[in-house]
């Protein structure tokens, strides 16, 4: 494909996905969704010095729908739309995360896909979607591809998205109806706060009350939130009570928090262990009908 530069002042607002993809194929437009990450980075600076591709009017990107394999969250779905959508209980963790994103205004504008594409280590949407086993669907004029979320976010502000690609949806696999989830965010204040640590757990129990499937992810303690798949596999077949006995510090390997204004690394790592236990406990309680 050829590389050209978009005129600096241009602002595209297509309604058809094909137009959006054609634009991206043509030039490295900056994608604009809710703008809640775009504008704060430009305080006191111009906002019209980059070419913008506003995707909020692309019909095919909006809304949450049921698919054969599970659920499809369109790229421009806002956090408020997630909160209001009639979704199964396994989405409760994601909804709790949605309610914890900024304040109501941010939830009304900010999008799920924007949160993933921005790839902040503290993005609240990432742990619940990791725990749910979500995938990201990318499209370009060359076609579409799907990546597990853990392979999409590569690090702090780094994703696997190529400049000519657009994230068009987040895909969540179906879970048994009885599956439940949880989300806990640790921050220094109630609203408008970036997480010091946050995490999410999802669990489905079989008829015997044993763990049939589960997921656990912790954010803000590594360059990208981590999903603990090996631990999740290890817990399968155990009752929740047994599962807790299985938990060991090694299960959460890979957490490598930094010191910053929100908290020290030592604090984060300890809080992450506590929080991991708590999100699992909550998801288990929900699944066992105890909460």
């Amino acid at each position: 494909m050829h590389i050209s530069t978009a005129p600096a002042a241009s602002y595209l607002q297509p309604t058809a996905l094909s137009d959006a993809l054609a634009a991206l194929a043509d030039a490295p437009y900056v994608v604009l969704a809710g703008g809640t990450d775009f504008y704060p980075g430009r305080v006191g600076k111009p906002v019209d010095d980059v070419a913008l591709l506003d995707i909020t009017r692309v019909a095919d990107l909006s809304g949450i729908s049921r698919t054969a394999e599970g659920w499809r969250i369109g790229a421009t779905t806002t956090w408020s739309e997630v909160i209001e959508a009639p979704l199964p209980a396994v989405f409760d963790g994601l909804k709790a995360a949605a309610r914890a994103v900024g304040g109501a205004q941010i939830q009304n504008s900010g999008t799920v896909a924007g949160n993933l594409c921005n790839a902040s280590p503290a993005a609240d949407g990432v742990p619940p979607l990791l725990a749910l086993g979500a995938e990201v669907e990318l499209a370009s004029t060359l076609g579409t591809r799907r990546l597990p979320l853990s392979q999409f976010i590569l690090g702090n502000r780094k994703t696997a998205r190529a400049a000519h690609e657009l994230v068009i949806a987040v895909l969540v696999p179906a879970w048994p109806e009885a599956a439940r989830s949880s989300f806990i965010k640790l921050g220094t204040r109630k609203y408008l706060v970036i997480s010091i640590v946050m995490g999410s757990a999802v669990v489905a129990l079989d008829k015997a009350g044993r763990i049939a499937r589960c997921g656990l992810a912790i954010g803000a303690c590594s360059a990208a939130a981590l999903s603990f798949d090996a631990l999740a596999r290890k817990l399968v077949g155990h009752t929740p009570a047994e599962a807790f006995k299985q938990l060991a510090a090694e299960d959460l390997q890979g957490l490598a928090p930094i010191n910053d204004v929100r908290g020290s690394a030592a604090y984060r790592i300890e809080a992450a262990f506590t929080l991991a236990g708590q999100v699992l406990a909550r998801a288990f309680e929900q699944a066992e009908g105890k909460a």
Partner: peptide, 13 residues
């Protein structure tokens, strides 16, 4: 009808 921060909302939207 929905509250948004007008400082981070593009007029085109």
């Amino acid at each position: 009808g929905k509250q948004v921060c007008s400082c981070i909302t593009a007029v085109a939207q």
